[in-house]
Design a protein around this nucleic acid. Sequence first.
DNA 1: TACGCGAGGTGAACCGGTTCACCTCGACAT
DNA 2: ATGTCGAGGTGAACCGGTTCACCTCGCGTA
Lengths: 336, 336
Amino acid sequence: MASRPGRRTTIRELAEYTGLSPAAVSYALRGMQVSAETERRVREAAEELGYEADPIARALAGGATAVVGLLVGSLADFWNQELVRAVQRELYGAERSTLVADADGEPARELELARRLIDQRVDGLVVVPIGPASGGWESIARELPTVTIGDALPGVKPAGEVIFDHDRGVRTSLEHLRESGHRRITVLSWAVETSPNRQAERAVVASGAALGLDLDVVACAYSLNGSRPLAQELLGSPERPTAILCMSDSIAYGVYAACAELGLSIPGDVAVAGFGDHPISRLLAPPLTSTVWDIDRVAESATSFLLQAIEADGPQATLRELVAPVLVARDSTRRA
Amino acid sequence: MASRPGRRTTIRELAEYTGLSPAAVSYALRGMQVSAETERRVREAAEELGYEADPIARALAGGATAVVGLLVGSLADFWNQELVRAVQRELYGAERSTLVADADGEPARELELARRLIDQRVDGLVVVPIGPASGGWESIARELPTVTIGDALPGVKPAGEVIFDHDRGVRTSLEHLRESGHRRITVLSWAVETSPNRQAERAVVASGAALGLDLDVVACAYSLNGSRPLAQELLGSPERPTAILCMSDSIAYGVYAACAELGLSIPGDVAVAGFGDHPISRLLAPPLTSTVWDIDRVAESATSFLLQAIEADGPQATLRELVAPVLVARDSTRRA
DNA sequence: TACGCGAGGTGAACCGGTTCACCTCGACAT
DNA sequence: ATGTCGAGGTGAACCGGTTCACCTCGCGTA
């Protein structure tokens, strides 16, 4: 109900209206250092004049913007899209806005975008990284509260980490494929080229060795359209694998598309498993075997970590959560 | 390269360094009113000191924030998720950041979120509305450049509109179903309750009448999990429709899920068609008949309209684009 | 030579909050 | 009655840019 035409009510107008000083009004609005009576008066006046503090001015003076940056390594990945939504909802509850940035699969872009978000003076950063790329994350994590999701950034001490238990996740998936009779397995991971040292990649190698599997780890773009041509190539070759493990459901979708185009049947000709268990995965033909990372829980932990760090306003110990994987076996890996 | 510890370089420091006044530096950095020589000197000094203008201060003083608000009626809809990504990418090219807000299916929340975005001083607004809800959009569109996607907001003269040609889209879909032998068709639309006067809804009624179909329009939540229980109910009843037309692919996915649970076959027992043609739709079993709205084109037009309006900085004629529908017939509507 | 003009530059106010240093005044202890 | 203390409030500086009004000076023209 503020006076629409043009400018908004300012704190000085409010001061004049109540006969107080701007300082008093400022304190009163934030419930500090003033008598209950004064606070009431100011609040009423604010109501009456439709006063609404200008976040920009507040940010310039005080520091906090109530905006959080959400940096996603690849928004082409459906799981990440869902994650954005979940984080979004959590932050809405916390009265904060979200500045979203998408590195679009290019690790080099991540740091640049992070800088851009910091320039915008976000209060904190949620990062769903593609990979460590260059250094630079350390200084960012030191500059402002940062929470990572999915993979830890090596050498970085962020405010919080929500980490997928890739050791167990990959192990479980590979065991499952092994039990279904597969030995020659290709693993498609979008990170293998950009960040060969990620936990997920290490887990793949370790588990493969432990289980005596013949693994082939292949770098793959992060999306349906990214993995399709690669899958076409892989599956068209004479020594094609009997199973493909995809480090994201989106990648698996591309494999499905390739199979359709090549006339291969899943799981008859090749078994496919994903990661993330996107809601659509169970609707595919055949339903996709995948591994659940509970998105809502991930988002909740991440935002909670971030908010705690923002409140604390000083270096704390890193809050950490290891997200347990749950394998959901469906028909895409059924024994032929 | 800025001095990390603490504060950034300010324009006054830069002024001192170059021996100019802050005003001159400010002008120089934006290439106004200064000699080439001065501009060069300032730019060099800026480089040297790692100067980067503070967007907050700039916003407070000048007005523009280089941030655009993206307000989505429902991020649970997969098509909208893709749209966010596409708009995101367009804006990245235009050196602008994006504040994303999700009304989460509640029309009432849309206006509140729009206000919140305006409070953050976004330079413009891209709205993917659920529905007109209350008035209030007029004043918003008058306050700042606004572009709508999908449906026009009645009574509002925004800076731009990218509108789906629902008349043709719905008509084409219904004709297609009719040709496949269907007469009793249920239409699931998430907007029918919140905004019964949307173009899409009117198109449904008009086309249904023109084609002599027995239509039943049912309001439905906007997501897979939202439509599933509804579809269960619909398909469990004795006089179930022979075809279901969903105003979004996400809704169709819920119908698929319900069919799976009820043991109904698509298209044998019931035909299903969607809208939007999400990349996954063709991977379902059976592949989903849908109608393409070219997402990249939509995003490009919308952002281009918005940027033009922001540049123009004054009321212009509404830029408008009508997006043509293209039906993609797949097996989910194959004649039984 | 006098004059006008415009390019180039300056100082200070301003945007709208926050915060620091300081002041006042009444209550309470001594 | 005096001194102390702290709750409540004030004025002004400050955050870091932008912009307005004004000033200066060199050049071209009459």
